[in-house]
């Protein structure tokens, strides 16, 4: 069995590809072969020993569906891949739209529908939550720098300025808001989300929905150390029934079909969990889940293959992950090969 996985960019803003691969390998039953799908020749996953058998460059999501399809069709001729697990937000729309065509090539995936992707889109989340009685910070959408002048009408500074796909900055005044707006919009486009800033502790949940409304598993984590980019560099599994129940409610009402990360903040004022974000894929810390007793990536693979999976009912509290940097070494010839051939 061959499984292709994207997001091998295990950098300081890591993609979930490497931890998803480690999770699959964590399962004693797993005996598949891993193929890496990469966007850049310097993605660290390429250089890790025994991580993937082979890696192929695929076109950036921004270059269009036709190009992606042609590249995948070419790769499929060489590899006969059984399952693709896309792990990055920005590529999901493309893979969802190609789902049927890839199925004809014999490739299975386990993805949310286009509509589901739209519900969790950061600009729609607010309405979804209010409709379902889930607390959510207030937010407005802005499409131009001029709109930022309206911020004081809606909330007090500081506010959070966020991109539709990635990036978020906490800003204290109009000038900072403008800078953040320009930074984010030049990279990720419009609109930009301006969100109420809530004080409190951050909690994250990794979960897997089977598409019928059932939550296969959900593991909650509190970040112990946060980098200056806002990424968790260490975390610990915790259990609060309230947190898991809200996550299950989200999955049930969307009938979510895939991995998911839910980001919450527990307001120090009200003590309530506010849903900040739904990410439509596993997070980069997903390998914590199998280590705490719920191998959600392996369960996703089983679902993709059309197999039945058991619902997880518990996990170990107090399991810790600590991320580390680890330098890898190779010769220029490796870079040459991947640069000129597009595969290695």
């Amino acid at each position: 069995m061959k499984i292709a996985i994207t997001g091998l960019n295990a950098t300081d803003n890591p993609g979930p590809g490497v931890p998803v691969i480690r999770s699959l390998r964590h399962s004693k039953e797993f005996d598949g072969e891993i193929i890496g799908f990469i966007y850049d020749v310097l993605e660290p996953g390429i250089y890790m020993e025994n991580l993937t058998r082979k890696n192929y460059l695929i076109p950036y999501p921004s270059s269009g569906l036709e190009n992606l399809y042609e590249r995948l069709a070419y790769i499929q001729q060489q590899e006969k891949i059984d399952v693709i697990i896309p792990t990055l937000d920005s590529e999901l729309f493309g893979f969802v739209k190609l789902e049927d065509k890839l199925k004809e090539l014999g490739i299975k995936m386990f993805l949310p529908s286009f509509e589901q992707l739209n519900i969790r889109a950061k600009d729609k989340l607010f309405d979804f939550c209010t409709d379902n009685n889930i607390y959510v910070p207030k937010n407005i959408l802005v499409s131009s720098v001029l709109d930022l002048h309206k911020i004081p009408e809606e909330f007090d500074y500081p506010v959070v300025v966020k991109g539709i796909f990635y990036d978020a900055y906490i800003v204290n005044n109009l000038e900072e808001a403008k800078t953040a707006f320009l930074k984010i919009s030049s990279k990720w486009g419009l609109p930009i989300i301006v969100q109420e800033f809530l004080k409190g502790d951050e909690f994250n949940v990794v979960a897997l929905g089977d598409g019928t409304g059932m939550t296969v598993g959900a593991v909650a984590m509190r970040k112990l150390y946060i980098t200056d980019k806002g990424k968790g560099w260490a975390g610990i599994t915790i259990f609060d029934n309230n947190l898991i129940e809200i996550s299950k409610k989200v999955i049930e009402s969307i009938k979510w079909r895939s991995g998911m990360e839910l980001e919450f903040i527990k307001s120090s004022e009200t003590g309530q969990y506010y849903l900040l974000e739904i990410n439509p894929r596993f997070p980069a810390w997903v390998y914590l889940a199998p280590n705490a007793g719920q191998n959600l990536p392996y369960a996703l693979l089983q679902l993709a293959l059309g197999k039945k999976v058991e619902q997880f009912d518990k996990y170990n509290v107090g399991t810790i992950f600590v991320r580390s940097s680890w330098d890898l070494f190779t010769d220029i010839s490796v870079l040459e090969k991947i640069t000129t051939k597009g595969e290695i």
């Binding site: 220029i332 870079l335 040459e336 090969k337 640069t339 000129t340 051939k341």
Partner: peptide, 17 residues
Amino acid sequence: ISDSGFIFLPSTGETFT
């Protein structure tokens, strides 16, 4: 320059295709 048209400039570390 390699057969694949890849150049490595040792003095600067730059590569070209």
